[in-house]
Amino acid sequence: MTHPTAFQKIQAELVQHSKAQSSALPKLKSLIKGLTLPAVLILVCEYLVRAGFIEPYLLPAPSSLWLTLTELATGDLWQHIWASSWRVFAGFAIGSFLALVFAVLVGLNKQAEDFLEPSFSAIKSIPSLAWIPLLLLWLGIDEASKITLIAIGAFFPVYTNTVAAIKGVDHKLIEVAQVYRLKYWQRVQQIILPAAAPGILTGLRNGLSLSWMFMIAAELIAATQGIGYLLSDGRETSRPDIVILAIILLAVLGKLTDSLMKALETWVLRWRDVIKN
């Protein structure tokens, strides 16, 4: 058995380095394309405000937002971000957990579907703002009402996508499980849930996005901390810079959490790459 020479080792490292560079180049191009539209919008807004076409009290120049950010960062900005993030993750965890439990029950049991599906379909149609007066009466203006509203927002996309994913499992897979004489829960754990995993994860991503939306609805009504409070405070004090900065923070946090969910989805569904290869 011959050992690789130093030249062969260096050559192998160069090949791996070139492969890494070739795979990184498309990602860099994609990133540049994604940043093009925001950069153009920023430049156009900067020009329109500086040239006097738009009054600064209506739309501040993007360059002035940096001063607002530094002003808020030296204050309680991080407390607002933490308050909103904590509410979102708590509500999302509760709502998605309950949604998965009921969705698996409805997706696997026709009797449960007949009892639960009509009620869930009706409740799903209720706008988010309609829940706020009732939750304030029941739970007050503390954290419980906000987290409950966020949980409601996360529940239905997770529930709907999970039920659809379970019912959309290929019947041929179930027939194969019957041929191998797998027991009922073995079929659920080894066949149905893995096959439904893409739809379930899509529902979780949608639920997390809606959690941020419902969080704003909760904080705009009754809150003393949070990004929604910043939006309301900026409107009441006629500070469009604070309002726009709060919107940008929502976009950044929403994108960040969605990227984390996408990374989780890629890791959970890594078996698809194995099948393709």
Rank of each mutant, 00 (worst) to 15 (best):
A144N: 13
S125N: 08
A154F: 10
T68C: 06
L264P: 00
A20C: 00
P118Y: 12
I200M: 09
G168L: 00
M261D: 10
L129M: 15
S63D: 03
S85E: 02
I126T: 12
N161T: 02
S23F: 01
I192R: 04
V169Q: 04
V252Y: 11
V40A: 08
L173S: 13
A99V: 08
F7G: 09
H80D: 02
L260G: 13
I242N: 07
A99W: 04
W185M: 10
V104E: 02
P127D: 01
W185T: 11
V15L: 06
R270S: 13
I126R: 07
T224F: 04
F115Y: 09
P56Q: 10
V179R: 06
G203M: 03
S22E: 06
K29Y: 09
R270A: 13
A6L: 14
F89H: 14
F155D: 11
I141L: 14
S64P: 00
F102M: 13
A164T: 10
V243K: 04
G228H: 03
W212V: 10
F120Q: 12
S64T: 08
G199C: 04
T160W: 02
A246M: 05
T5F: 15
Q225M: 08
H17D: 00
R205L: 07
A218M: 00
H171M: 05
P38C: 10
W212Y: 08
I227W: 02
A223W: 01
H3T: 15
S64K: 08
P60S: 08
H80G: 08
A263F: 12
L135A: 12
A83T: 05
L269Q: 11
V44H: 06
Q11G: 12
I192P: 01
A195L: 06
L25H: 10
E46K: 04
H17S: 11
L204T: 03
L100K: 12
D258C: 12
Q8E: 15
P127H: 04
A197W: 09
A223F: 00
G153V: 07
L98D: 07
P118C: 05
R205S: 14
I247R: 06
K29F: 00
Q8Y: 09
G153N: 10
A6K: 15
L250K: 09
S238A: 15
T70K: 03
V104F: 07
L249D: 04
A195T: 07
F92G: 05
I275S: 13
T162I: 02
S259G: 15
Q189D: 08
G34M: 09
K19T: 05
Q16I: 08
T74L: 04
A223D: 03
R87D: 08
L134D: 01
L220V: 12
Q11A: 13
S84M: 05
L100Q: 06
S128P: 00
A165C: 02
Y57P: 01
S209M: 12
F92V: 13
